[in-house]
Amino acid sequence: MTYYDRYKNGECREVCSELLAMGTAVRDSAVVEDAAAVAREFVSRAVRNVKQIHSRLLGLGYAFRRPKKALVVREEPCYREVNAFEREMGTLPLVVREWYARVESLDFGQSEDQFRQSDSDLKGLEWHYELLVWSLDEAMLAWAELKEQHQELREHYRREKMNLYQEDPVPCLITGGCASNNDSDGFSLPCLEFDAVKREDGESLTYTDFFRKAFQYGGFPVLTCHDQYLKQHTSLYPRPNIERLLPLLTQDIIAL
């Protein structure tokens, strides 16, 4: 049975874990087409979920921080921009490549006004977690800024006669969001594996795990961790109406 067949039959986590464990061997000719099919199916399910949550958030009156960037999806994969990015920056992991073939932008960030709106069921909904993956254009701008900062530091330390920042920065895909230590989400390129680590925050969070975690809580993990962590900070972090929102946002979510 192929990895794709196993994935379709419900072995989702197992298949993704096995393909990731292969490392760069996932690009071998005997495996790569099957692995790419799994990646496409994963992304297809993820897209269905984000479209569903996006629609429900609109119905609830959720105020997106960047409405035009909240969700921009292609109905069919298009690899033109992905191929151009890879030629300049390096190969993307299979899951991330398929993601960008379907999704131009994802940002479920909440407007500051609504985040603190005391009479809204949605207040505080986006606390501490962003369902966010920048567009490739935004990622390229972030990379350009990183290179510029690196060059400025290189010149500074040269003047100080210190041997720091002398190596060229390694190309990377910066995808938006950050860990609790403020390290930006993203990974070095090229990456020839099935998946990549999006965030290091006490533990490694791959893209497949990032989306699973998000969808488990309707896109907003604060809906389950709020009471556990924030009782002592209620004046700083308003409590959303968890009892109402969680069933609405998680209903009919497809397993990844």
Rank of each mutant, 00 (worst) to 15 (best):
E81F: 13
N83C: 08
N83L: 03
N83H: 12
N83F: 01
A84N: 03
A84W: 00
A84F: 08
A84P: 01
E86S: 07
E86L: 10
E86P: 02
R87F: 06
R87V: 04
M89Y: 07
M89W: 01
M89G: 02
T91L: 12
T91N: 13
L92H: 06
L92K: 10
L92R: 08
L92T: 00
P93E: 08
P93W: 11
L94G: 01
L94I: 04
L94T: 03
V95G: 09
V96N: 03
V96D: 07
R97V: 06
R97C: 10
E98M: 10
E98Y: 05
E98R: 02
Y100T: 03
Y100F: 15
R102N: 11
V103I: 11
V103T: 04
E104R: 13
S105A: 13
S105T: 05
L106Q: 00
D107R: 01
D107G: 01
F108L: 08
F108K: 04
G109Y: 07
Q110R: 04
Q110M: 08
S111W: 08
E112G: 06
E112Y: 11
E112K: 07
D113Y: 11
D113G: 02
D113S: 13
F115W: 12
R116P: 00
R116K: 07
Q117T: 10
Q117N: 13
Q117Y: 11
D119R: 11
S120P: 09
S120M: 11
D121A: 10
D121Q: 07
L122Y: 05
L122E: 04
L122N: 02
K123D: 00
K123G: 12
L125K: 03
E126C: 12
E126R: 06
H128D: 14
H128W: 01
H128P: 00
H128A: 07
Y129E: 09
Y129R: 12
E130I: 00
E130M: 06
E130G: 08
L132T: 00
V133I: 11
V133Y: 06
S135C: 05
L136C: 03
D137P: 00
D137T: 05
E138W: 02
E138A: 07
M140S: 13
L141Y: 01
W143Y: 08
A144R: 15
A144Q: 14
L146N: 06
K147T: 05
E148I: 08
H150W: 13
H150V: 09
Q151A: 15
E152C: 09
L153K: 13
L153Y: 06
R154I: 03
H156V: 09
Y157Q: 06
Y157V: 10
Y157C: 12
R158P: 04
R158A: 11
R159P: 05
R159V: 05
E160M: 15
E160G: 14
K161W: 12
M162N: 09
N163G: 04
N163T: 06
L164S: 08
Y165Q: 06
D168C: 11
D168F: 14
D168W: 07
P169M: 14
V170H: 11
V170R: 13
P171L: 12
P171D: 12
P171I: 14
C172S: 15
C172R: 15
L173Y: 15
I174T: 04
T175F: 13
G176Y: 04
C178G: 14
C178L: 07
C178A: 15
